[in-house]
Design a protein around this nucleic acid. Structure first.
Lengths: 224, 224
DNA sequence: TTATCAATCAATAGAATAATTGATTGATAA
DNA sequence: TTATCAATCAATTATTCTATTGATTGATAA
């Protein structure tokens, strides 16, 4: 094979991957699947894509070898095809924050609506967990909590969060986490908690980053 | 701003970046600019794109904040917009090798044409350089050598390589390097050297990775 | 078997992307 | 000033991508 043809083929193969990543819906799917394997139906519900459309986007990602599938009965579960995929997604997200001022601005704007937002890192939380004076709440949908969550965390999904807020003890610090840096569910929870007089902080990143760092997580079930 | 709108905006901004990367020609340009700043003319020549077309691709990358420009007289120099950009490109390349079997196969196939190919890592070469028994040759176009090269390396561009092969001493080990993991110029050089009885090896990665690791490099000029 | 439901497929229309061509701008040098 | 050359722009066509619709497949349960 001559060098020119080789080059063309190599960059075409590389572009198969980057082109698959070059769509906002597919990026949203990547973030969702970073939480754990999901069925097409669940992905469809959580992205406001029709099932057929979600299925097509998933197939694009699968063809690029970024996702794998496994059928269980009627359901087909999609999942990230390995560690490298998540790491690359993290690198891209970091790139977004560093190069695109609009992204940081959007996040900051959203957060500045809240009274004030304390942020805690994985490491700080990991330390605090050794004591018994912190409560960790997982504000993602319960389905995602069920696949896996930070060890010891309680499930307090956002939609009906305010109805259950009094289940939380007023005398302990509360740390909320969600899907990751592009997700603001934890910010909403912290805002609500703070306005109810709780001392609440947001985990800087989300569950996937916690897990990828080898920090303690619980269960591994499949969600419907 | 409601959460749904926020989400849409965030992922759209992220996709502006990934979409810019989702084209084979633009990836080739990224690899080329990893060597250092280049004019549109030079990029055009080295990618078999027309000047107008190259210019348009460059503008796409610039709009995504992945490239920056600087005019010097008649020439406009494009360069990677910072460390994060190169790092993300490396992550994507690694992803390509790990997920897309075709990429590794293409590279291996190309190399297996050569008699045999010894590969040396940055670290091994760095060690060897402390002695005086290794000659490092840069087989990229001279223009790229002139911007910057591994400290002490000699410029032996590929096209006319065979004509100058006898300038090299037969009693020293020779290490050839080029643009990086997707570039096979160094492989060609090592093949030629080996067939002429030299002991030659290829640097595993290329100049950009060497530089990014803080290893010693020379000059910083602009090329035409 | 039939009904049901998750997922995929197939066909389409509309939108976005890419390459080509020729004209235009911006800077340098004759 | 005029000529020259790098780069960009503008307009066009061909191609590719995306969302929608309705039909089909594959598995489970009545």
């Amino acid at each position: 094979m001559n060098k020119q043809l080789f080059n063309r083929k190599i960059y075409n193969e590389m572009a198969d991957i980057t082109r698959a990543l070059g769509n906002s819906h597919r990026l949203e799917i990547m973030d969702l699947l970073s939480q754990g394997p999901s069925s097409v139906a669940y992905i469809s519900e959580n992205t406001s894509l029709t099932v057929a459309n979600a299925s097509q986007h998933l197939q694009v990602l699968k063809q690029a070898k970024l996702l794998e599938t496994e059928r269980k009965g009627k359901y087909v579960y999609y999942r990230l095809a390995g560690r490298h995929v998540f790491e690359t997604w993290c690198a891209l997200r970091k790139l977004g924050f560093s190069q695109n001022a609009e992204i940081s601005r959007l996040v900051e704007d959203y957060r500045s609506k809240q009274h004030h937002l304390d942020i805690i890192t994985k490491e700080e939380l990991s330390d605090k967990m050794k004591g018994d004076d912190v409560i960790i709440i997982d504000v993602r949908p319960e389905e995602e909590y069920k696949i896996a969550h930070i060890a010891g965390a309680l499930s307090f999904p956002l939609p009906d969060f305010h109805e259950r807020i009094n289940e939380l003890p007023a005398d302990k610090e509360i740390v909320a986490y969600c899907r990751g840096p592009l997700c603001v569910m934890a910010d909403d929870a912290v805002d609500l908690l703070t306005r109810h007089g709780y001392k609440a902080t947001r985990l800087e990143q989300g569950f996937p980053e916690w897990k990828a760092n080898g920090l303690p997580v619980e269960p591994f079930e499949m969600k419907a």
